[in-house]
């Protein structure tokens, strides 16, 4: 039975890899031997496969493999806290979510209160009576953080200096949670059938949409701390404002 050229050409790329059943293969080969155009087409594939088969020459060089395993294991050891198995994550996530929600709750309460008591320094976000965390924009988040910092200043015993270490710890924690949430959501998207982990991770990412701002703030505060610069509310709030102005 003669086959038409279009059909044969659709199968030619499978011929050199033995991806066709024996009967089809022999029919196509028979056609190729009797048809000049299909024969030329097939020769092109043969040449292409000859080249591709030599790709094994591109083995990783020794320099690339050197210390590869050791580096991976080192990284795993360094991130051991975050890298708990999923069963432990299931205990970890509610705690993490509670922490983030608690932190954001404090911000929300404070932003709400700021309606009647506007801050004198660079707190420019519109106070809202209800602030849903999933809708929090960069500016709102920054303002919320600045409100928290401002509140610290007003707390008795902290009237002159802000407990920067505490704020930094809080921000570091936030950063870890964000990084972990993002990473997990990426990994989870690649996994089969674990929608729950993915949904939880995505919720966290949604709650705080701007890890770069947290990073920038941490970096700025760390610089101040390392320089031994006197830290007060104004300086930190103006730092926030400058981060905000660069980002908005």
């Amino acid at each position: 039975m003669s086959m038409d050229c279009e059909y044969v050409r659709g199968k030619l790329s499978s011929l050199p890899r033995a991806e066709l059943n024996p009967l089809e293969r022999s029919e196509i080969l028979e056609h190729v031997q009797s048809c000049t155009q299909c024969s030329e087409e097939y020769a092109g594939y043969t040449r292409a496969f000859h080249l591709v088969d030599r790709a094994k020459l591109l083995d990783p060089p020794a320099e690339i493999l050197d210390g590869f395993s050791a580096d991976v294991l080192k990284r795993i050891d360094a991130t051991n806290v975050i890298g708990l198995p999923r069963r432990s994550h299931r205990r970890f996530w509610p705690i993490a979510a509670a922490f983030v929600l608690g932190f954001l709750g404090a911000m929300v309460v404070h932003v709400t209160r700021s309606k009647s008591e506007p801050y004198p320094v660079l707190v420019t976000a519109e106070p809202r009576s209800t602030l849903r965390t999933t809708e929090m924009s960069d500016a709102e988040m920054l303002s919320a953080i600045s409100c928290v910092l401002e509140e610290n200043r007003k707390t008795p015993g902290c009237t002159k200096e802000i407990p920067v270490k505490q704020v930094l710890l809080k921000l570091h924690r936030l950063r870890v949670l964000l990084a972990d949430a993002r990473r997990r959501s990426q990994i989870d998207r690649t996994l089969v059938g674990d929608a729950r982990g993915s949904a939880e991770a995505l919720e966290l990412v949604k709650e705080i949409q701007d890890p770069q701002t947290v990073d920038a703030l941490i970096r700025a505060l760390e610089v101040y701390e390392s320089q031994g610069t006197t830290l007060n509310a104004n300086r930190i709030v103006s730092t926030l404002a400058s981060i905000r102005s660069r980002r908005i």
Binding site: P61, V72, R86, R184, L191
Partner: peptide, 28 residues
Amino acid sequence: IYKMTFNWEVARDLAQDAFVDLWRSRGT
């Protein structure tokens, strides 16, 4: 990864990331 990026250094880094991700998702 190399045959997709054609850069050994990049391939090494991304491969390390892939193994770390695998370890992190071992529970699932």
